[in-house]
Every structure is written in C-alpha cells, then in structure tokens.
Design a protein around this nucleic acid. Structure first.
Lengths: 349, 349
DNA sequence: TCCCTCTGAGAAAACCTTTTCCCAACCCGC
DNA sequence: GCGGGTTGGGAAAAGGTTTTCTCAGAGGGA
C-alpha cells in the first residue's frame, strides 16, 4: 500500500500557529502578528506576503492565547432558570444574535432553581474568564438562585429581578396592558373585563393597574380583575363567572387576558356557550405565543413582549459595560407591541 | 474624606494568580501548582499550607491558561436551528446538564437556517478551541446549514441528520408509535386510525410504518394514515374525514396522532360532535408537550421522546470522543416513553 | 566623511499554568 | 566519611499571541 493512500487521521492535525506562518513567510512571529493585525510598520509588500501566507495555510489565531493576553475572552455567560424556555429562548436567541457579530460567544447555563447548579455554573464561567453575564429567568419578579452582586465582571439582568444598583431590562407590562385596553376602546368596546394569573406575580398587578388606569382615564369603571392561574382551565372558569349570570346586558363585550393560554380557554368557553368572538366579545391575550395564538378560533390578538429585541438590548448593554462605558443602573422597561389577529373584530362602521 | 471610605471599583480588582499564592506561601509557582493539583512530592505540611493560602486568597486557576497548555478547553459548542426551541431546549438542557458536572461549558449557537450565521458560529467556536460540537435541530431528517464533516474536532449529531460516518442520536419514532398502538390494543381498541403530519417528514413514515406493522402483527388491517399538517386545524379536518360519514360502526375507536397539536384538534373536534373521549374514542398524541397535553380535555396520553435524556447521551458521547475513546459511527435510536393521562380510558373490565 | 533621523523588522517579555528535569540536602548502611 | 537512594522543592520550558523595546541599515544634509 503506498503510504500516501493512508488516510490521515484528521483529528490529529493540529491547527496552524502564527509561528508556522512566520516561518513560511520568512519573518519573525512579531512581524507576522503585526502584519495580520494591521499594526507596526513594514513595507506593503511584506504585509501582503504574510497575509497571503496566512490565508494559504488557513491560519486562525488561537483565541485562548489572545484572551490570556488581552484579559478579554470575548465570551459571556447566559444564566437562566427557564428550562422550557418559552420566554428564555427568544431572549437567548436575541442575546446571542447581538453578540455573535461582535465575535462574542455565549455560554448557556441552565441553573433550574438549584443553588448548587447555579454556583457551579457561575464558578465555571468565572474560571473561563467570561467578560460578563446576562441573567435571565422565567419571572420578572424573582431572583435567580445565585448571587451575582459581588462579581468582578459586569452583569445585566434581562426579564428577571435585578440586584439593587444593577442594570436591568424588562418588558413594560403596564404599557402592554395599555395597548390592549386602548385597542378595545378604539373598537368601541366599553365593558372590558380582565382575567389574569395569580396575585403572587408582579406582572399581574402591573397589568391590572394599567387596565384600571386606562378605563378611568376614559371615564369608565373597571370591573375587579379576576385573578386565577396561568391556564386554559382558569380561562374556562373565568368565563363561567363572567357570563353565567342573568342579564345579557351585564356581560362584558371584551376580555383582556393575562396570557394566551387563559385567552384560549376564554375563547373556547365562549364558543361552547354560543357567544361569538369577536362579534359579541373581543379577546386579547398576552405573550403572543404564536403556537397558541394562531391555533385559537379565531386567531388571537395578543401583546408581544419583544423578547428577542429585549435580549439584543441586554447583549449590547453588557458589551457596553464590558468596554468600560458605564450604563445607568436601574430597570429599563422596553415597550410591548400589539399583534392584531382576528379575535377583536374591526372598528364599528 | 478618609481614603479608606473610597469605594474600590470592584471591577478593577484582578483575579488572584498562582504566582501570588506561591509568594504568599513562600514557595515557587511550581510547588504551588503541584500542591493544589495533588502532584509532586512535598511534606503534607507544605501542601496544606499552600492549599490554605490559596483558599484564603480565593485563588481559582485561570482556565484559559490551563486550556492553552492542555490543548483542551473544556468547552463544547451546541449548534441548533430551532429558534423556538420546543425540541431543542430540553435537549440543550440535557447536554448542558451532562457536561457541567465534568467542568465542561456549552456555547449556545443559534444558526437559524442561515448559512452565513452557521459559518460565523462554527468559526468562532473553532477559534475558541472548543473540544467538540453537538449539532441539533428541529428536524431529524434535515441537515443544519453548515458543513461539519471536515473539522478537526469530534461532532455528535442529536435529533438532526448526521453526516455519513458520524455519530448520531435520534429518538426511536417507530418504537414510540409501537408503544402507542400497542397501548390501544391492550385497552381493547381495534379500529385504530392514524392522523399525522406532512409526508415530507421522515418521522411521519417511520411512525406510520410501525402503526401498520403492529396492526398486522395482531391480525388487524390498518387504515391508510391521514397525512396533513402538524396543526390543530388539521386535527379538526381529520376528524371530519373520519367521523362525518354514515355508519357509526365504521368509526374508529382510537386515533393515534402524529403530534400533540393534532391530537388536541382531534379531541376538540370530537367533543364538538358529542363523541366522548375516552369512552367512544381513545386518543394518543406524540411529543408529550406538557403544556398542550395537560390542557386538552381530557388530558392527553402521549409519547415522550425523552429529549433531555437524548441530550445527556449526546453530551456524554461527545465527551467520550473528545477523550479519544472511539464511538461506533451511525445513528443510534433511543427509546420513547408512553405517558398515560386520561385520553385512552382504562382496560375493559 | 560624519552625524542624525527614519524605516523596517526582530528579540524578548508578558499573560498564567503545568510539567519535566534538576539539584541540594538528608538518611542509611558500611 | 562515602556512595547511593530518597526527599522536598525550584528553575525553566512550553503553550500561542501581542506589544514594547531595540537595533541595523539606509538615506540625507553639512
């Protein structure tokens, strides 16, 4: 067997180093480095020759060595406790998106609600010298089970409770609720009910507050919000409470729901009662969880929290901090967006 | 103002190095390193003193420096094109879980279906000297938009189409379908229909094949599977096709659905027709997407693909390869699991 | 011819850790 | 006291890159 037929074990071939490039180009590593980075002074001819050599050899600088020297790893950690990622994943995608273009990679750290796991991940990240951390979670009003307050590196909190004095980004839930209720009002709806999740969630109060405010500003009285669970079943129950009573004229003509699952339950329960959506009652959800919103009959108008965009902003804010540009501490609220489908009908006339 | 009141800019304090530990303990860095790693020979007293010093100073070895030397970064990349992560996220959590305990961190790389983005992420990972890559996606029968076939590092494919000769892990869809159909048979159901997704998906054929096989093995004739979309709406339509015909005796007494959304549509459509689930018809879904399966009325029995466990296996397989232990190439199928809820009823009698 | 300045490029330190080799001192038996 | 083995610990190289400093030579003016 001719020896050149022997398949080279690909995995054994080490990456080409700067030293090899320099040798091939007949210069020192210093010159090679400078040539590739556009630093130093040399003839254009020399620089181009080195660059060409590097290209030919497929040279790529060892990021580890660079990081060691520059004290910047171009790496950040993304901490989350939202295993099933309904909220986290778009957010994570946003963070990653914003950073990959700047050559920054993202460590995924799922800490569940486990202190030990959190500790483990944070230490691993610190050891790997991440430049910063984005902390995110499934609830805006809860801390992750880790203490990030005394780290040597910047931390940005996105869609989770920030430490005091830290930089946090969350959705503007009150603003989102406003969009929903004002949409109803524009459509001529006047008897607007609000069905939401458990009182233990801060967002429930933020949204209910805005619901009341908008109605009051328009000279209407808000009904007491119905608080329950974040589930379809609660949507069913709420409809029973709202509509199973004498006097059709007392019925709401619109229901603003705390999330899309509740809205789905509401819509299904209304259909079962022969009440038409959107003709008799308009329904708006929250979260714009497409897979749910598009499966309701009719498809659900909903409030989108723009989580991907929130993630991008968080990524950029972190980068800013890493680069030493100070950011205003405190919580910044990012606007929501109304996504109109068919559960509210058209304006009258 | 006394100078000690001046708040030290926390972010400026650099991490403590081995050199500092050595100096504080009055030994050389070599000795310090050996003391902390349990290498070399020295008096127990010396070793303990160094360890204590390190603990006091909060020394943590710089992973970058270690990686540079060991040519192992204890870092892997996780490539996915499943932005909304219904399948990816449990899988990713599994990979991360399996690896964090071994000190290995995971780079999250969302490539959408974008070649450029894929290229960008792969190069970033290679530059950062990841030890290996787990590739995953939203479809078992599609490639990611990146070429991973000639990398210097090992690659494991999980829940996505592997390159020829590579190591791949997927769910055993045929086995899962078998579990479902056999469950129906155990419950005494005999006229079992199959409603599934588009014919363009490989899993549709795998599951349909197993459906036919099990029925044949039991001396029953399989109806032609109804192929459509992965949606609730298609579940509704399919029920119309199956049940809106003369002769109640021709109706199925069980429907095996290709995913939980279809199953949900089927259950809703049956209820609207006054057909009882599970009394008249049993329904089984696929994916065990809890948020859907638990919201159907009655809650949906479904097939779980054990994706978290698949992710763990993929992580461990990759680690194996990284450590130089060869793995059998080819696709390994991991068993699914039947999750019984209330949509199939109890055994007769 | 001499001195000065500028140009192009290299040597070496630095980043932090691990590991190999080496050395000095000590103990033992003879 | 001496040779040999053992013990405790240090010096130095290695890993790949960047950056600062240095230097040789060329060019120009007097």
């Amino acid at each position: 067997m001719p020896s050149d037929a022997e398949p080279a074990p690909v995995s054994a071939k080490p990456p080409v180093t700067l030293r090899e490039v320099a040798a091939a180009a007949g210069v020192s590593v210093a010159t090679a480095s400078k040539a590739l980075n556009g630093q130093g002074r040399m003839t254009a001819e020399t620089r181009e020759r080195i660059r060409e050599t590097a290209r030919l050899l497929g040279f790529r600088p060892n990021s580890l060595a660079q990081s060691l020297l520059r004290k910047r790893s171009f790496t950040v950690g993304l901490l989350t406790n939202d295993t099933y990622g309904r909220f986290s994943l778009p957010l994570m995608a946003g963070v990653s998106d914003a950073l990959v273009d700047k050559g920054v990679s993202v460590f995924l750290c799922n800490v569940e609600d486990d202190q030990r796991l959190g500790q483990l991940h944070v230490e691993a990240m610190l050891d790997k010298r991440v430049d910063g951390i984005v902390a995110t979670g499934k609830r805006i009003d809860r801390h992750l089970p880790v203490d990030l307050s005394n780290l040597r590196i910047p931390v940005v909190y996105a869609f989770t409770q920030p430490d005091p004095g830290a930089v946090g980004l969350v959705s503007d839930d009150a603003g989102g609720a406003r969009l929903a209720v004002e949409h109803f009002l524009r459509l001529g709806r006047r008897r607007i009910a609000h069905v939401s999740g458990p009182a233990s969630f801060a967002v429930v109060h933020a949204r209910a507050g805005a619901y009341r405010d908008v109605l009051r500003e328009n000279g209407l009285v808000a009904a007491e919000p119905l608080l329950g669970a974040w589930s379809e079943a609660w949507g069913h129950d709420a409809v029973a409470k709202l509509f199973d009573k004498a006097g059709r004229e007392g019925w709401p003509d619109a229901v603003f729901c705390g999330n899309d699952q509740i809205a789905r339950g509401v819509i299904d329960a209304l259909r079962e009662r022969g009440i038409s959506v959107p003709d008799d009652v308009g329904v708006i959800g929250f979260d714009n969880w497409e897979i749910v919103a598009e499966a309701t009959r009719p498809p659900l108008t909903s409030i989108d929290m723009n989580l991907a965009s929130l993630g991008r902003d968080a990524g950029l804010a972190l980068l800013s901090l890493v680069d030493g540009r100070p950011a205003a501490p405190g919580v910044r609220k990012l606007p929501c967006r109304l996504v109109v489908r068919q559960s509210c009908g058209s304006p009258p006339g």
